[in-house]
Design a binder for these strands. Structure first.
Lengths: 242, 242
DNA sequence: TCAATAGTGTCTGTCAGACACTATTTT
DNA sequence: AAAATAGTGTCTGACAGACACTATTGA
């Protein structure tokens, strides 16, 4: 009985998100001449698995190469694997998408090998075609990130070490694309044990009453979760596999 | 500049869950002689990707081979990809886990090619070693399924076409491993629009007042979600990548 | 003093937990 | 009638939405 198999090159693609100017940004690279096909297109950073590496290793290495960030410290989450036979014209390449959440970095762009890396506002990309199936990967991963903000505390990973409740709220507003009531958000965050820890300092570089500064707390799961408004009528499943 | 790459065989493994006797069961196969390594061990059903197939195609094909179910009709969800270089002694095999949720099937076991397929109670497997990294795959996928029951209506996929609220509750109780208050569950289910649709029939094969029968409704997302009791202190992240 | 931002108090509506109660069947 | 299961009503507490109110800074 024949059992045909097929070999593939495993790869990891990264969706690295951050907040800049209160908007959600994603790190994209412009593909160079040596990157045929899709020369000149925008693409997610990523690369092939090397001998001895797991996909997670590859993702960490690419993250370090692109941003200088230590993948061991940032939340780096596997999201989904893309395997359509014709998704890459170079051949059979099966890629796994990883979500990385980064604070606003002082100087990120210009990684070691990508021809150019730049933060792009996610909202600007709704009608911009990306290389390969990266539009789909980005869209799935964004939905994954939105879901994560509901029941985990990863939103704090978008913030610097010390942050205000306002800044944390702006993370939620940017990722979810909604406005949240500042007072209710404040109450929710401070009443959820372990979400944030008072750093006993204040931010004084703004007009208005100085805001207290916090560090991320020990909790990783939010229970009860943050309620994301505006869920539609529930007849669509964002996790559908079609 | 050297860019070493590595080729791998992509594979799909299936975690097929059902409820039997009010307990959560998973379909496992016993590995035969031709299945070295791990001869005689229990393993998740699965197989290699064939030319022209995506991982989803492979999962659907394996599901049909193992259970005779049409993968296009059952919810079949990608969960996570496992890629440690030494996870399979035969070589570099990268496998993607899929979750399938099945109603209690009349005659499931004895697929076409697996030497033997059998439903096993998940609780019995806590101290049973499975082949490869399948214990880990099973544990991740179970947590994924538990999470799905919170915010989607997939629990109805465990039920036959017509089912009672009691049966639906027993799905939640079996998957979550908790007891739920029957009255409150009943109210929650019936008040959530589109979760279930009254079939205008009754179940009469039991002592006690006959229960109304329902079909699954059009909703796919539960908003607000079902609250899973007993979440612990929230300091652990079930989605952690370590 | 005013604008601006941070943070608190409080009312209300929704919903989950608890549980008493009613309803409808078999034995 | 008793046992068994299904389903409803209702009280209570937790919490989200809304928003008035206080607090603390710079201009």
């Amino acid at each position: 009985m024949r059992r045909p198999r097929v070999a593939a090159l495993p790869a990891a693609d990264l969706v690295i998100l951050t907040i800049r100017e209160q908007r959600l940004n994603v790190l994209l690279v412009k593909r160079g001449k040596k990157d045929e096909p899709y020369f000149g297109w925008l693409a997610l950073p990523g690369g092939f698995v090397r001998p001895g590496e797991s996909l997670e290793d590859t993702a960490k290495r690419e993250l370090a190469e692109e941003t200088g960030l230590d993948g061991g410290k940032l939340p780096l989450q596997q999201v989904r694997t893309y395997s359509l036979p014709n998704r890459d014209p170079r051949g059979r390449i099966v890629t796994t998408a990883f979500l990385a959440i980064a604070p606003n970095l002082p100087e990120v762009t210009g990684g070691t090998d990508a021809s150019r890396a730049d933060w792009i506002e996610v909202d600007e990309l709704r009608s911009t075609p990306l290389a390969f199936d990266h539009n789909q990967i980005l869209s799935h991963t964004l939905e994954h990130a939105r879901r994560l903000l509901e029941y985990t505390t990863v939103a704090t990973a978008f913030c610097p070490e010390l942050f205000t409740v306002s800044e944390l709220r702006q993370v939620y507003e940017a990722v979810w694309g909604v406005s949240l009531n500042p007072q209710n958000f404040h109450r929710k965050v401070r009443r959820t044990e372990g979400f944030v820890v008072d750093a006993d300092k204040r931010r004084t570089d703004q007009p208005g009453r100085p805001a207290e500064l916090f560090r991320r707390g020990p909790a990783r799961i939010l229970y009860p979760p943050m309620l994301r408004p505006n869920q539609g009528d529930g007849s669509e499943d964002p996790a559908a596999q079609t």
